[in-house]
Design a protein around this nucleic acid. Sequence first.
DNA 1: GATCTTTACTTCGATCGCCGAGATATCAGG
DNA 2: CCTGATATCTCGGCGATCGAAGTAAAGATC
Lengths: 155, 155
Amino acid sequence: MSEIAVRLKNVLAASDAYRHTVARLVGLGVPETTILVHLLHAGPRTPSALARRVGVTPASVTAQLDRLELAGHVVRRSNPRDRRSVLVDLTDQGRDLAGRLFALFDRDVVTGIGDADPATTAELGRILEHLSRRLDERARDTHAIAADLEESGRR
Amino acid sequence: MSEIAVRLKNVLAASDAYRHTVARLVGLGVPETTILVHLLHAGPRTPSALARRVGVTPASVTAQLDRLELAGHVVRRSNPRDRRSVLVDLTDQGRDLAGRLFALFDRDVVTGIGDADPATTAELGRILEHLSRRLDERARDTHAIAADLEESGRR
DNA sequence: GATCTTTACTTCGATCGCCGAGATATCAGG
DNA sequence: CCTGATATCTCGGCGATCGAAGTAAAGATC
């Protein structure tokens, strides 16, 4: 099934360039746009949750949130459940921007998919769902990945 | 069809974290690993071609190639067809590393996909092919994207 | 309920990567 | 030739990221 992996790799590479272009247009970095759209779909989140999501350190997220807050896209509110942490939420302006960013992406994805029949599209959705979960859990298990890289070296 | 876009967005976010983890394990940056695997599948390429692929400026690619060359993963050979340019190729060591990086990704993708029937898988491949082409051409057309972002603002 | 560990965020200092502009060399066309 | 376009590299400067340390609060243990 290595064909799928190659094609998916190409999609990832194309998406990198795509997100890069879009981020520059709105004057933000790629991680910042990722945060905005994630907040749009997931609702208020803590900085540490965002750090795990974006795959950078909490220190970087602090800086990114500073920039986003300065630009008026997000606000930091205190978390009533846990006073150690902070809840980051979109402002109206940030919600508008995030909505436009996602709408743009969505249109291009629909165009890129073209005229696939509903059954295939549904299957595609199921596969993507599994895939994101798999990659997500793998990304956190550094030891397992290191072991697998080792093993493939010995084969 | 916005469901697919959401799922794909999740795959992209997960892939970011995944590639980040893998790159750190082998002591390289994410762009460098992207270059390695691309060279593995596409064969020798010029720095400018790699810059378009990775979505950074040629100046950055020069630095990335310096690092990769220093680590013994790639070599710069003169291009017999065009003496202005350079052909970047994998060394045996680089080819081995690139192969392991892709094999790791491939296994996780296969695991993530699970048991889809062959017909669906083939269709999925076709869709991904279209999608990467679409995103790729869009990423280069800054003006069109800017216009679309504007338009969605007025709607 | 006092202590200890863990978790959450931030700040700081330092490093690293990326970009833009300029320089050099080569190609292609008139 | 001469001009304009292309390909790469160098350099300077800015900005982002990281690791480590600091503060604060929640949770666990006895």
